[in-house]
Design a binder for these strands. Structure first.
Length: 611
DNA sequence: AAAAAAC
Protein backbone atom coordinates (compact mmCIF):
# COMPACT_ATOMS: atom_id res chain seq x y z
CA UNK A 1 0.00 0.00 0.00
CA UNK A 2 1.86 2.94 -1.27
CA UNK A 3 1.78 6.13 0.69
CA UNK A 4 2.22 9.54 -0.68
CA UNK A 5 5.78 9.26 0.36
CA UNK A 6 6.54 6.09 -1.49
CA UNK A 7 4.66 7.39 -4.46
CA UNK A 8 6.86 10.39 -4.57
CA UNK A 9 10.01 8.37 -4.35
CA UNK A 10 11.74 7.84 -7.62
CA UNK A 11 11.97 4.26 -8.63
CA UNK A 12 15.24 2.76 -7.56
CA UNK A 13 16.45 -0.81 -7.34
CA UNK A 14 16.02 -2.06 -3.82
CA UNK A 15 19.57 -3.19 -3.80
CA UNK A 16 20.78 -0.27 -5.82
CA UNK A 17 24.47 -0.63 -6.38
CA UNK A 18 26.82 2.17 -5.61
CA UNK A 19 27.56 2.88 -9.21
CA UNK A 20 23.94 2.90 -10.24
CA UNK A 21 22.78 5.33 -7.62
CA UNK A 22 25.66 7.68 -8.06
CA UNK A 23 25.31 7.70 -11.77
CA UNK A 24 21.63 8.32 -11.57
CA UNK A 25 21.95 11.48 -9.59
CA UNK A 26 25.45 12.69 -10.24
CA UNK A 27 24.46 15.08 -12.95
CA UNK A 28 22.09 16.99 -10.71
CA UNK A 29 24.28 19.08 -8.54
CA UNK A 30 22.31 20.73 -5.80
CA UNK A 31 23.91 23.84 -4.37
CA UNK A 32 24.20 23.80 -0.58
CA UNK A 33 21.55 26.42 0.05
CA UNK A 34 19.02 24.41 -1.93
CA UNK A 35 19.89 21.06 -0.42
CA UNK A 36 17.44 19.57 1.98
CA UNK A 37 14.63 21.39 0.25
CA UNK A 38 11.45 19.67 -0.76
CA UNK A 39 10.92 19.35 -4.45
CA UNK A 40 7.27 20.22 -4.24
CA UNK A 41 6.12 23.60 -3.10
CA UNK A 42 3.42 22.41 -0.75
CA UNK A 43 5.83 21.12 1.84
CA UNK A 44 7.60 24.42 2.20
CA UNK A 45 6.37 24.72 5.75
CA UNK A 46 8.59 21.86 6.81
CA UNK A 47 10.82 22.75 9.73
CA UNK A 48 14.23 23.96 8.75
CA UNK A 49 16.92 21.82 10.26
CA UNK A 50 18.66 23.52 13.07
CA UNK A 51 22.05 24.85 12.25
CA UNK A 52 24.56 23.87 14.86
CA UNK A 53 24.44 26.56 17.53
CA UNK A 54 28.15 27.03 17.89
CA UNK A 55 28.83 27.13 14.21
CA UNK A 56 29.87 30.18 12.34
CA UNK A 57 29.88 30.46 8.60
CA UNK A 58 33.30 31.98 8.53
CA UNK A 59 34.88 28.70 7.70
CA UNK A 60 32.87 28.10 4.59
CA UNK A 61 35.85 28.82 2.43
CA UNK A 62 37.56 25.68 3.57
CA UNK A 63 35.08 23.41 1.91
CA UNK A 64 36.34 19.93 1.39
CA UNK A 65 39.47 18.31 2.66
CA UNK A 66 41.55 20.95 0.98
CA UNK A 67 44.01 21.38 3.78
CA UNK A 68 45.33 17.96 3.25
CA UNK A 69 46.26 18.99 -0.27
CA UNK A 70 44.76 15.85 -1.63
CA UNK A 71 44.32 15.62 -5.35
CA UNK A 72 40.93 14.09 -4.77
CA UNK A 73 39.28 17.27 -3.61
CA UNK A 74 37.70 18.02 -6.90
CA UNK A 75 36.32 14.57 -7.31
CA UNK A 76 35.00 14.56 -3.86
CA UNK A 77 33.15 17.79 -4.24
CA UNK A 78 31.65 16.64 -7.50
CA UNK A 79 30.47 13.52 -5.86
CA UNK A 80 29.22 15.23 -2.79
CA UNK A 81 26.45 16.87 -4.65
CA UNK A 82 25.46 13.70 -6.37
CA UNK A 83 25.96 10.73 -4.12
CA UNK A 84 22.79 11.20 -2.22
CA UNK A 85 21.38 14.21 -3.93
CA UNK A 86 22.87 16.60 -1.48
CA UNK A 87 25.88 17.24 0.69
CA UNK A 88 27.09 13.71 0.85
CA UNK A 89 30.60 14.48 1.93
CA UNK A 90 30.09 13.71 5.57
CA UNK A 91 31.68 15.83 8.22
CA UNK A 92 35.20 16.94 8.63
CA UNK A 93 35.73 13.60 10.16
CA UNK A 94 35.34 11.57 7.08
CA UNK A 95 38.92 10.76 6.37
CA UNK A 96 38.22 8.36 3.64
CA UNK A 97 40.93 10.03 1.61
CA UNK A 98 38.80 10.80 -1.39
CA UNK A 99 35.61 9.63 -2.88
CA UNK A 100 36.98 6.72 -4.76
CA UNK A 101 38.25 4.87 -1.74
CA UNK A 102 35.70 6.06 0.76
CA UNK A 103 32.69 5.34 -1.33
CA UNK A 104 33.68 2.07 -2.85
CA UNK A 105 34.70 0.63 0.46
CA UNK A 106 31.41 1.25 2.15
CA UNK A 107 29.98 -2.20 2.45
CA UNK A 108 26.31 -2.44 1.64
CA UNK A 109 24.70 -2.75 5.05
CA UNK A 110 21.52 -4.05 3.52
CA UNK A 111 23.40 -7.06 2.25
CA UNK A 112 23.72 -8.28 5.82
CA UNK A 113 20.00 -8.78 6.09
CA UNK A 114 20.14 -11.46 3.48
CA UNK A 115 23.21 -13.05 5.01
CA UNK A 116 21.96 -13.31 8.54
CA UNK A 117 18.37 -14.15 7.86
CA UNK A 118 18.37 -16.61 5.02
CA UNK A 119 15.38 -18.43 6.41
CA UNK A 120 13.06 -15.49 6.20
CA UNK A 121 11.49 -13.47 3.50
CA UNK A 122 12.47 -9.87 3.05
CA UNK A 123 8.94 -8.61 3.20
CA UNK A 124 9.33 -6.91 6.50
CA UNK A 125 12.55 -6.53 8.34
CA UNK A 126 11.72 -3.48 10.33
CA UNK A 127 10.82 -5.39 13.43
CA UNK A 128 8.08 -2.89 13.98
CA UNK A 129 4.46 -3.75 13.89
CA UNK A 130 2.95 -0.57 12.59
CA UNK A 131 -0.67 -1.54 12.91
CA UNK A 132 -0.20 -2.27 16.57
CA UNK A 133 0.88 1.30 17.03
CA UNK A 134 -2.19 2.91 15.61
CA UNK A 135 -3.81 3.22 19.00
CA UNK A 136 -0.79 4.04 21.10
CA UNK A 137 -1.38 7.20 23.07
CA UNK A 138 1.15 9.99 22.67
CA UNK A 139 1.64 13.03 24.81
CA UNK A 140 3.93 15.98 24.35
CA UNK A 141 4.60 19.03 26.44
CA UNK A 142 7.01 21.90 26.53
CA UNK A 143 7.38 25.26 24.93
CA UNK A 144 6.44 25.57 21.26
CA UNK A 145 6.36 21.89 20.48
CA UNK A 146 6.90 21.27 16.77
CA UNK A 147 3.90 19.40 15.39
CA UNK A 148 4.11 15.74 14.45
CA UNK A 149 4.05 14.51 10.90
CA UNK A 150 2.05 11.71 9.39
CA UNK A 151 4.36 10.58 6.63
CA UNK A 152 8.06 10.52 5.93
CA UNK A 153 7.37 12.70 2.91
CA UNK A 154 6.43 15.57 5.19
CA UNK A 155 9.78 15.33 6.87
CA UNK A 156 12.49 16.73 4.72
CA UNK A 157 15.33 14.36 5.25
CA UNK A 158 16.87 14.53 1.81
CA UNK A 159 17.13 12.09 -1.04
CA UNK A 160 19.84 9.87 0.31
CA UNK A 161 18.11 9.32 3.61
CA UNK A 162 14.76 8.83 1.89
CA UNK A 163 16.29 6.17 -0.31
CA UNK A 164 17.64 4.38 2.76
CA UNK A 165 14.30 4.62 4.51
CA UNK A 166 12.85 2.96 1.49
CA UNK A 167 15.55 0.32 1.44
CA UNK A 168 14.68 -0.37 5.06
CA UNK A 169 11.11 -0.84 3.88
CA UNK A 170 9.80 1.72 6.31
CA UNK A 171 6.49 2.85 4.92
CA UNK A 172 5.21 5.16 7.57
CA UNK A 173 6.71 6.63 10.69
CA UNK A 174 5.92 5.13 14.08
CA UNK A 175 4.39 7.41 16.72
CA UNK A 176 7.70 8.18 18.35
CA UNK A 177 9.18 8.98 14.95
CA UNK A 178 6.26 11.16 13.94
CA UNK A 179 6.82 13.33 16.98
CA UNK A 180 10.51 13.05 17.74
CA UNK A 181 11.85 13.66 14.25
CA UNK A 182 10.25 17.10 13.76
CA UNK A 183 11.25 18.05 17.29
CA UNK A 184 14.84 17.03 16.69
CA UNK A 185 15.00 18.58 13.23
CA UNK A 186 13.89 21.84 14.80
CA UNK A 187 16.99 21.67 16.94
CA UNK A 188 15.15 21.09 20.18
CA UNK A 189 16.32 18.97 23.06
CA UNK A 190 14.09 16.00 23.72
CA UNK A 191 13.16 13.90 26.70
CA UNK A 192 11.30 10.90 25.36
CA UNK A 193 9.61 8.16 27.31
CA UNK A 194 9.41 5.36 24.83
CA UNK A 195 9.91 1.64 24.83
CA UNK A 196 12.23 -0.28 22.64
CA UNK A 197 10.54 -1.53 19.56
CA UNK A 198 8.84 1.80 19.11
CA UNK A 199 11.21 2.89 16.38
CA UNK A 200 13.41 4.95 18.65
CA UNK A 201 16.66 4.29 16.85
CA UNK A 202 15.43 5.79 13.62
CA UNK A 203 13.78 8.58 15.56
CA UNK A 204 17.12 9.88 16.76
CA UNK A 205 19.29 8.69 13.87
CA UNK A 206 17.39 10.37 11.05
CA UNK A 207 17.68 13.91 12.43
CA UNK A 208 21.30 13.38 13.43
CA UNK A 209 22.32 12.07 10.01
CA UNK A 210 20.30 14.76 8.30
CA UNK A 211 21.86 17.44 10.49
CA UNK A 212 25.37 16.20 9.83
CA UNK A 213 24.77 16.17 6.09
CA UNK A 214 23.33 19.65 6.14
CA UNK A 215 26.05 21.18 8.23
CA UNK A 216 28.92 18.99 7.21
CA UNK A 217 30.95 21.64 5.49
CA UNK A 218 30.30 24.46 7.89
CA UNK A 219 31.59 25.29 11.30
CA UNK A 220 35.02 25.10 12.80
CA UNK A 221 37.23 22.22 11.91
CA UNK A 222 38.49 20.00 14.65
CA UNK A 223 42.07 20.58 15.70
CA UNK A 224 44.44 18.45 13.75
CA UNK A 225 45.46 15.92 16.32
CA UNK A 226 46.91 12.74 15.00
CA UNK A 227 45.14 9.60 16.13
CA UNK A 228 42.39 11.54 17.87
CA UNK A 229 38.85 11.12 16.66
CA UNK A 230 36.31 13.94 16.76
CA UNK A 231 32.80 12.56 16.46
CA UNK A 232 30.00 15.04 15.84
CA UNK A 233 27.36 12.80 17.35
CA UNK A 234 27.53 10.43 20.30
CA UNK A 235 25.00 7.70 21.00
CA UNK A 236 25.30 5.96 24.36
CA UNK A 237 23.53 2.72 25.16
CA UNK A 238 23.66 0.32 28.11
CA UNK A 239 24.58 -3.00 26.58
CA UNK A 240 27.06 -4.09 23.97
CA UNK A 241 24.46 -5.85 21.90
CA UNK A 242 22.29 -2.78 21.85
CA UNK A 243 25.22 -0.68 20.70
CA UNK A 244 25.92 -3.19 17.97
CA UNK A 245 22.31 -3.11 16.89
CA UNK A 246 22.13 0.68 16.87
CA UNK A 247 25.32 0.74 14.83
CA UNK A 248 23.92 -1.71 12.31
CA UNK A 249 20.75 0.31 11.93
CA UNK A 250 22.55 3.63 11.77
CA UNK A 251 24.81 2.28 9.04
CA UNK A 252 21.77 1.48 6.96
CA UNK A 253 20.32 4.92 7.49
CA UNK A 254 23.66 6.56 6.68
CA UNK A 255 24.46 4.41 3.67
CA UNK A 256 25.94 6.49 0.87
CA UNK A 257 25.41 9.70 2.74
CA UNK A 258 29.10 10.03 3.51
CA UNK A 259 28.27 10.05 7.21
CA UNK A 260 30.51 7.59 8.98
CA UNK A 261 29.19 5.56 11.89
CA UNK A 262 31.59 3.75 14.22
CA UNK A 263 30.80 1.55 17.20
CA UNK A 264 32.93 1.05 20.33
CA UNK A 265 32.13 -1.41 23.10
CA UNK A 266 33.94 -3.58 25.58
CA UNK A 267 34.74 -7.25 25.36
CA UNK A 268 36.05 -6.85 21.85
CA UNK A 269 39.60 -6.05 20.77
CA UNK A 270 40.09 -2.33 21.06
CA UNK A 271 42.58 -2.13 18.22
CA UNK A 272 39.99 -2.77 15.55
CA UNK A 273 37.80 -0.06 17.01
CA UNK A 274 40.75 2.32 17.20
CA UNK A 275 41.48 1.71 13.53
CA UNK A 276 37.89 2.40 12.61
CA UNK A 277 38.02 5.62 14.63
CA UNK A 278 41.21 6.68 12.88
CA UNK A 279 39.54 6.29 9.54
CA UNK A 280 37.15 9.00 10.64
CA UNK A 281 33.92 9.08 12.58
CA UNK A 282 30.87 11.30 12.48
CA UNK A 283 28.55 9.26 14.68
CA UNK A 284 30.03 7.25 17.51
CA UNK A 285 27.86 4.57 19.08
CA UNK A 286 29.31 3.35 22.36
CA UNK A 287 28.82 1.71 25.72
CA UNK A 288 29.97 3.98 28.57
CA UNK A 289 32.87 1.89 29.82
CA UNK A 290 34.67 1.60 26.53
CA UNK A 291 34.09 5.24 25.74
CA UNK A 292 35.66 6.32 29.03
CA UNK A 293 38.60 4.12 28.14
CA UNK A 294 38.92 5.79 24.75
CA UNK A 295 38.66 9.24 26.30
CA UNK A 296 41.35 8.41 28.84
CA UNK A 297 43.60 7.21 26.07
CA UNK A 298 42.93 10.53 24.35
CA UNK A 299 41.83 8.71 21.23
CA UNK A 300 38.44 10.36 21.21
CA UNK A 301 37.58 13.99 21.88
CA UNK A 302 34.05 15.15 22.46
CA UNK A 303 34.68 18.80 21.72
CA UNK A 304 33.03 18.62 18.31
CA UNK A 305 29.87 16.95 19.61
CA UNK A 306 26.72 18.58 18.25
CA UNK A 307 24.34 15.71 18.96
CA UNK A 308 24.17 13.58 22.06
CA UNK A 309 21.68 10.73 22.32
CA UNK A 310 21.26 8.56 25.39
CA UNK A 311 19.29 5.40 24.81
CA UNK A 312 17.64 3.40 27.58
CA UNK A 313 18.75 5.99 30.09
CA UNK A 314 16.86 4.46 33.00
CA UNK A 315 18.53 1.16 32.32
CA UNK A 316 21.93 2.81 32.25
CA UNK A 317 21.29 4.32 35.66
CA UNK A 318 20.00 0.98 36.96
CA UNK A 319 23.26 -0.52 35.88
CA UNK A 320 25.24 2.03 37.82
CA UNK A 321 26.44 3.99 34.84
CA UNK A 322 25.48 7.37 36.21
CA UNK A 323 29.01 8.38 37.35
CA UNK A 324 30.48 7.37 34.02
CA UNK A 325 27.74 9.09 32.07
CA UNK A 326 28.09 12.28 34.06
CA UNK A 327 31.80 12.12 33.56
CA UNK A 328 31.41 11.71 29.82
CA UNK A 329 28.78 14.40 29.46
CA UNK A 330 29.80 16.92 32.10
CA UNK A 331 33.46 16.48 32.89
CA UNK A 332 35.11 15.91 29.55
CA UNK A 333 35.30 18.37 26.70
CA UNK A 334 31.73 18.03 25.49
CA UNK A 335 29.91 21.28 24.67
CA UNK A 336 27.29 22.22 27.28
CA UNK A 337 23.51 21.88 26.94
CA UNK A 338 22.10 24.49 24.62
CA UNK A 339 25.21 24.33 22.49
CA UNK A 340 24.90 20.67 21.71
CA UNK A 341 21.56 19.07 21.01
CA UNK A 342 20.61 16.35 23.46
CA UNK A 343 18.08 13.55 23.01
CA UNK A 344 17.33 11.53 26.12
CA UNK A 345 15.38 8.29 25.76
CA UNK A 346 14.09 6.32 28.68
CA UNK A 347 11.33 3.80 29.24
CA UNK A 348 10.42 5.37 32.57
CA UNK A 349 10.83 8.82 34.05
CA UNK A 350 11.75 8.42 37.72
CA UNK A 351 13.44 11.07 39.84
CA UNK A 352 16.97 10.14 38.80
CA UNK A 353 16.13 10.53 35.15
CA UNK A 354 14.38 13.81 35.85
CA UNK A 355 17.58 15.06 37.45
CA UNK A 356 19.57 13.85 34.49
CA UNK A 357 17.15 15.63 32.17
CA UNK A 358 17.45 18.84 34.16
CA UNK A 359 21.24 18.65 34.02
CA UNK A 360 21.72 17.47 30.43
CA UNK A 361 18.89 19.15 28.55
CA UNK A 362 18.01 22.70 27.71
CA UNK A 363 14.41 23.86 27.22
CA UNK A 364 13.44 20.39 26.22
CA UNK A 365 10.30 18.95 24.76
CA UNK A 366 8.81 16.11 26.76
CA UNK A 367 7.40 13.24 24.74
CA UNK A 368 5.64 10.21 26.17
CA UNK A 369 4.65 7.31 23.98
CA UNK A 370 2.30 4.74 25.43
CA UNK A 371 3.80 1.66 26.91
CA UNK A 372 4.34 -1.24 24.60
CA UNK A 373 2.38 -3.39 26.98
CA UNK A 374 -0.64 -1.17 26.66
CA UNK A 375 -1.17 -1.98 23.04
CA UNK A 376 0.13 -5.46 22.68
CA UNK A 377 -3.09 -6.95 21.44
CA UNK A 378 -0.96 -9.17 19.31
CA UNK A 379 0.73 -10.72 22.30
CA UNK A 380 -1.23 -13.42 24.04
CA UNK A 381 -0.09 -13.53 27.64
CA UNK A 382 -0.40 -16.71 29.61
CA UNK A 383 0.56 -17.33 33.21
CA UNK A 384 0.91 -20.83 34.50
CA UNK A 385 1.44 -21.99 38.02
CA UNK A 386 4.65 -24.01 37.95
CA UNK A 387 6.73 -25.09 40.90
CA UNK A 388 10.48 -24.57 40.65
CA UNK A 389 11.03 -28.31 40.45
CA UNK A 390 8.58 -28.69 37.58
CA UNK A 391 9.81 -25.87 35.41
CA UNK A 392 12.07 -27.89 33.16
CA UNK A 393 9.60 -30.60 32.34
CA UNK A 394 6.93 -27.97 31.85
CA UNK A 395 9.13 -26.10 29.43
CA UNK A 396 9.76 -29.31 27.56
CA UNK A 397 6.01 -29.85 27.28
CA UNK A 398 5.62 -26.40 25.80
CA UNK A 399 8.40 -26.94 23.32
CA UNK A 400 7.04 -30.32 22.30
CA UNK A 401 3.59 -28.88 21.84
CA UNK A 402 5.05 -26.13 19.73
CA UNK A 403 6.76 -28.66 17.55
CA UNK A 404 3.66 -30.80 17.30
CA UNK A 405 1.60 -27.85 16.22
CA UNK A 406 3.70 -27.73 13.13
CA UNK A 407 5.34 -24.52 14.07
CA UNK A 408 8.37 -24.44 11.87
CA UNK A 409 11.39 -24.21 14.06
CA UNK A 410 13.15 -21.71 11.90
CA UNK A 411 10.22 -19.41 11.66
CA UNK A 412 9.22 -19.56 15.28
CA UNK A 413 11.99 -18.55 17.59
CA UNK A 414 11.55 -19.13 21.29
CA UNK A 415 13.19 -16.85 23.80
CA UNK A 416 13.46 -18.22 27.33
CA UNK A 417 14.26 -15.78 30.13
CA UNK A 418 15.90 -16.95 33.30
CA UNK A 419 17.05 -15.10 36.39
CA UNK A 420 20.69 -16.05 36.67
CA UNK A 421 23.66 -16.62 34.44
CA UNK A 422 24.21 -20.03 36.00
CA UNK A 423 20.59 -20.86 35.40
CA UNK A 424 20.98 -19.89 31.77
CA UNK A 425 23.96 -22.17 31.34
CA UNK A 426 22.37 -25.16 32.96
CA UNK A 427 19.06 -24.76 31.17
CA UNK A 428 20.79 -24.43 27.83
CA UNK A 429 22.77 -27.53 28.60
CA UNK A 430 19.71 -29.43 29.68
CA UNK A 431 17.79 -28.45 26.56
CA UNK A 432 20.63 -29.51 24.31
CA UNK A 433 20.94 -32.85 26.09
CA UNK A 434 17.25 -33.37 25.48
CA UNK A 435 17.56 -32.71 21.82
CA UNK A 436 16.39 -29.12 21.61
CA UNK A 437 18.56 -26.80 19.55
CA UNK A 438 19.31 -24.14 22.14
CA UNK A 439 21.96 -21.57 22.84
CA UNK A 440 22.30 -18.93 25.52
CA UNK A 441 23.32 -15.36 26.10
CA UNK A 442 24.41 -13.77 29.36
CA UNK A 443 27.09 -11.54 30.80
CA UNK A 444 29.52 -14.28 31.74
CA UNK A 445 29.86 -15.47 28.19
CA UNK A 446 32.55 -13.89 26.09
CA UNK A 447 31.49 -11.18 23.73
CA UNK A 448 32.28 -13.49 20.85
CA UNK A 449 30.02 -16.15 22.29
CA UNK A 450 27.26 -13.63 22.88
CA UNK A 451 27.34 -12.35 19.36
CA UNK A 452 27.57 -15.83 17.93
CA UNK A 453 24.60 -16.97 20.02
CA UNK A 454 22.52 -14.05 18.88
CA UNK A 455 23.36 -14.66 15.22
CA UNK A 456 22.69 -18.34 15.55
CA UNK A 457 19.32 -17.61 17.13
CA UNK A 458 18.33 -14.95 14.63
CA UNK A 459 19.20 -17.17 11.70
CA UNK A 460 17.11 -19.99 13.08
CA UNK A 461 20.06 -22.31 13.44
CA UNK A 462 19.33 -22.61 17.15
CA UNK A 463 15.72 -21.44 17.45
CA UNK A 464 15.76 -21.53 21.24
CA UNK A 465 17.67 -18.85 23.11
CA UNK A 466 18.06 -18.93 26.87
CA UNK A 467 18.80 -15.44 28.13
CA UNK A 468 19.26 -13.33 31.18
CA UNK A 469 18.02 -9.77 31.23
CA UNK A 470 20.92 -8.78 29.01
CA UNK A 471 18.51 -9.56 26.17
CA UNK A 472 15.39 -8.18 27.78
CA UNK A 473 15.54 -4.65 26.49
CA UNK A 474 16.30 -3.09 23.23
CA UNK A 475 17.23 -6.09 21.21
CA UNK A 476 15.19 -6.34 18.10
CA UNK A 477 14.93 -9.92 17.03
CA UNK A 478 12.33 -10.47 14.37
CA UNK A 479 10.35 -13.68 14.31
CA UNK A 480 10.33 -14.38 18.03
CA UNK A 481 7.07 -16.27 18.29
CA UNK A 482 7.23 -17.25 21.91
CA UNK A 483 8.70 -15.62 24.98
CA UNK A 484 8.88 -17.88 28.01
CA UNK A 485 9.43 -16.30 31.39
CA UNK A 486 10.97 -19.41 32.89
CA UNK A 487 11.88 -17.22 35.86
CA UNK A 488 9.73 -14.14 36.22
CA UNK A 489 11.51 -10.87 36.90
CA UNK A 490 10.82 -8.92 40.09
CA UNK A 491 9.98 -5.77 38.23
CA UNK A 492 6.88 -5.53 36.08
CA UNK A 493 8.70 -3.16 33.74
CA UNK A 494 11.21 -5.90 33.02
CA UNK A 495 8.32 -8.24 32.28
CA UNK A 496 6.90 -5.75 29.80
CA UNK A 497 10.25 -5.43 28.12
CA UNK A 498 10.73 -9.15 27.94
CA UNK A 499 7.39 -9.96 26.36
CA UNK A 500 7.97 -7.05 24.00
CA UNK A 501 10.52 -9.26 22.22
CA UNK A 502 7.59 -10.98 20.54
CA UNK A 503 4.52 -9.78 18.73
CA UNK A 504 6.67 -7.77 16.40
CA UNK A 505 6.59 -7.21 12.67
CA UNK A 506 2.90 -7.86 12.42
CA UNK A 507 3.21 -11.37 13.76
CA UNK A 508 1.22 -12.47 16.72
CA UNK A 509 3.21 -13.51 19.71
CA UNK A 510 2.83 -15.71 22.71
CA UNK A 511 4.23 -14.97 26.14
CA UNK A 512 4.14 -17.69 28.75
CA UNK A 513 5.16 -17.10 32.34
CA UNK A 514 5.94 -19.65 35.01
CA UNK A 515 4.57 -18.33 38.27
CA UNK A 516 4.92 -19.66 41.80
CA UNK A 517 5.23 -18.42 45.40
CA UNK A 518 8.61 -16.89 44.67
CA UNK A 519 6.92 -14.38 42.40
CA UNK A 520 4.12 -13.31 44.70
CA UNK A 521 5.36 -9.72 44.74
CA UNK A 522 4.70 -9.60 41.02
CA UNK A 523 1.19 -11.00 41.27
CA UNK A 524 -0.65 -7.72 41.59
CA UNK A 525 1.17 -5.70 38.95
CA UNK A 526 1.08 -8.67 36.62
CA UNK A 527 -2.63 -9.21 37.09
CA UNK A 528 -3.25 -5.48 36.60
CA UNK A 529 -1.15 -5.39 33.47
CA UNK A 530 -2.85 -8.40 31.96
CA UNK A 531 -6.24 -6.98 32.75
CA UNK A 532 -5.26 -3.73 31.08
CA UNK A 533 -4.19 -5.68 28.01
CA UNK A 534 -7.49 -7.59 27.92
CA UNK A 535 -5.82 -10.83 28.77
CA UNK A 536 -7.40 -13.63 30.63
CA UNK A 537 -6.30 -13.42 34.26
CA UNK A 538 -6.40 -16.79 35.98
CA UNK A 539 -8.45 -16.81 39.18
CA UNK A 540 -5.56 -18.14 41.22
CA UNK A 541 -3.43 -15.20 40.10
CA UNK A 542 -6.11 -12.76 41.18
CA UNK A 543 -6.11 -14.43 44.56
CA UNK A 544 -2.34 -14.02 44.77
CA UNK A 545 -2.76 -10.41 43.81
CA UNK A 546 -5.38 -9.80 46.46
CA UNK A 547 -3.17 -11.38 49.05
CA UNK A 548 -0.10 -9.31 48.25
CA UNK A 549 0.08 -6.05 50.11
CA UNK A 550 -1.27 -2.91 48.53
CA UNK A 551 1.04 -0.58 46.75
CA UNK A 552 3.90 -3.00 46.80
CA UNK A 553 5.79 -3.21 43.58
CA UNK A 554 3.49 -0.72 41.97
CA UNK A 555 5.02 1.41 39.31
CA UNK A 556 7.15 3.97 41.01
CA UNK A 557 7.58 7.62 40.24
CA UNK A 558 3.88 8.28 39.95
CA UNK A 559 3.81 7.34 36.31
CA UNK A 560 0.34 7.32 34.93
CA UNK A 561 -0.19 3.75 33.84
CA UNK A 562 -0.36 4.07 30.11
CA UNK A 563 2.87 6.02 29.90
CA UNK A 564 6.27 5.23 31.28
CA UNK A 565 6.33 8.68 32.83
CA UNK A 566 4.93 12.16 32.70
CA UNK A 567 6.47 15.60 32.40
CA UNK A 568 7.21 16.55 35.99
CA UNK A 569 7.54 20.19 34.95
CA UNK A 570 3.78 20.25 34.65
CA UNK A 571 3.29 19.30 38.27
CA UNK A 572 2.09 22.00 40.61
CA UNK A 573 5.37 22.45 42.43
CA UNK A 574 6.95 23.61 39.23
CA UNK A 575 4.04 25.62 38.11
CA UNK A 576 4.85 28.98 39.69
CA UNK A 577 4.93 31.63 36.99
CA UNK A 578 5.08 28.91 34.43
CA UNK A 579 1.93 29.62 32.52
CA UNK A 580 3.70 31.33 29.68
CA UNK A 581 6.06 28.43 29.58
CA UNK A 582 3.70 25.51 29.40
CA UNK A 583 0.30 27.04 29.23
CA UNK A 584 0.02 28.03 25.63
CA UNK A 585 -2.46 25.36 24.70
CA UNK A 586 -0.30 23.39 22.33
CA UNK A 587 1.17 21.30 25.06
CA UNK A 588 -0.82 18.17 24.89
CA UNK A 589 -1.44 16.82 21.49
CA UNK A 590 -4.44 14.89 22.62
CA UNK A 591 -3.49 11.91 24.68
CA UNK A 592 -5.05 9.53 22.25
CA UNK A 593 -4.51 11.54 19.13
CA UNK A 594 -2.70 8.80 17.33
CA UNK A 595 -5.90 6.82 16.99
CA UNK A 596 -6.81 8.79 13.92
CA UNK A 597 -4.40 6.69 11.94
CA UNK A 598 -1.52 7.77 9.85
CA UNK A 599 -3.23 8.75 6.67
CA UNK A 600 -5.76 11.02 8.23
CA UNK A 601 -5.22 14.33 9.85
CA UNK A 602 -3.71 14.53 13.22
CA UNK A 603 -5.32 16.24 16.19
CA UNK A 604 -6.86 19.58 15.37
CA UNK A 605 -4.85 21.35 18.02
CA UNK A 606 -1.53 20.58 16.51
CA UNK A 607 -1.21 23.03 13.68
CA UNK A 608 -1.29 25.92 16.07
CA UNK A 609 2.02 24.89 17.53
CA UNK A 610 3.89 26.77 14.83
CA UNK A 611 1.75 29.89 15.04
C1' DA B 1 19.63 -11.15 44.68
C1' DA B 2 21.04 -10.68 39.99
C1' DA B 3 21.94 -8.56 35.97
C1' DA B 4 24.84 -5.34 33.10
C1' DA B 5 29.75 -2.78 31.99
C1' DA B 6 36.83 -1.30 30.63
C1' DC B 7 41.45 -2.97 30.65
Amino acid sequence: MPTSWSDSMEKAPANGGIGATSRASRSTYVPPHLRNRPSSAETSAAPVPHAGPALGNDMQGHVGPAVGGSHSVGHRRDRSGGGGGRGGGGGWNNRSGGWDRGREREANPFQDDVDTEPAFGVQENTGINFDAYEDIPVETSGKNVPPPVNTFAEIDLGEALNLNIRRCKYVKPTPVQRHAIPISLAGRDLMACAQTGSGKTAAFCFPIISGIMTNSQSGPRPPRMPRMAFPVALILSPTRELSIQIHEEARKFAYQTGVRVVVAYGGAPINLQLRELERGVDILVATPGRLVDLLERARVSLQMIKYLALDEADRMLDMGFEPQIRRIVQQMDMPPPGVRQTLLFSATFPKEIQRLAADFLSNYVFLAVGRVGSSTDLIVQRVEYVLETDKRSHLMDLLHAQRANGVQAKQALTLVFVETKKGADSLENWLCINGFPATSIHGDRTQQEREYALRSFKSGKTPILVATDVAARGLDIPHVAHVVNFDLPNDIDDYVHRIGRTGRAGKSGLATAFFNENNSSLARPLADLMQEANQEVPAWLSRFAARSSYGRNRRGGGSGGRFGGRDFRRDSSNRGGGMDYYGSGNNVNGGYGASGGYGGGYGPTVTSAWD
